[in-house]
Design a binder for these strands. Structure first.
Lengths: 107, 107
DNA sequence: GAGAAACGCAACTTTTTGGTTGCCTATATC
DNA sequence: GATATAGGCAACCAAAAAGTTGCGTTTCTC
């Protein structure tokens, strides 16, 4: 159950369509260099590199240097942490609804 | 299955600890006016009001005017949409892992 | 009906973010 | 060894975000 302070940077990293697209492309399990991820992205290689740095900064992707290229791969554990926060709030909501219902039926 | 363009604004609204705290407080099912939400928040009422406007803008909370006060309430459906995007990527990841394993076992 | 409470609107300031361009380094490849 | 490829680094720019202050409007409450 991540705190708000811990979860916010994670959501911030997810708050960009380019980065979401990058994560989705990496969800096939493969590790790719920047050029491969930049191709088709309409953006500069530098821009993509910056986005990957943001994702790497919060641990959503892992970077590994291999020769002259830098490979990026998805880290689904971190995705799960973001989901955990949402789950927690939804659970709290469901619980509150349950209490309300019980109270109405059994006043 | 929300697209990246649809999910990004949702995550952007979640990318702030103050807003996450507001959502969590609203997860008990209650609808509260701004002053109640601003108390204890260290921020100005205006700042909290702006944050609520952001949340309302993406549909994460509902606003309803009641007399002189504006009541805010959580809308968990939108939370579920954010989760759906994460689920989708994780499912894609699991699927890729499954294929890889199958390929190794049955080459 | 006078004062207070709750809020909206608008202007302004300061950071942060997304993006570009230019240049330099390291590694392949011929 | 010369050249092309893949990236990192730094400066710079424009737009958006976070927050504040001030002021006006509506609605309670006495």
């Amino acid at each position: 159950m991540p705190s708000a302070e811990a979860a916010a940077p994670l959501f911030a990293a997810l708050a960009d369509p380019t980065r979401l697209a990058l994560l989705k492309r990496l969800a096939d399990g493969g590790a790719r260099p920047i050029v491969a991820l930049a191709s088709g992205s309409a953006l500069t290689r530098q821009a993509v590199s910056k986005h990957l740095a943001v994702l790497s900064g919060v641990g959503l992707v892992a970077r590994r240097r291999k020769g002259r290229e830098t490979l990026y791969a998805l880290r689904p554990e971190r995705l799960a942490e973001a989901r955990a926060w949402l789950d927690e709030v939804e659970a709290q909501w469901e619980d509150a609804l349950g209490r309300l219902k019980a109270h109405v039926e059994n006043p």
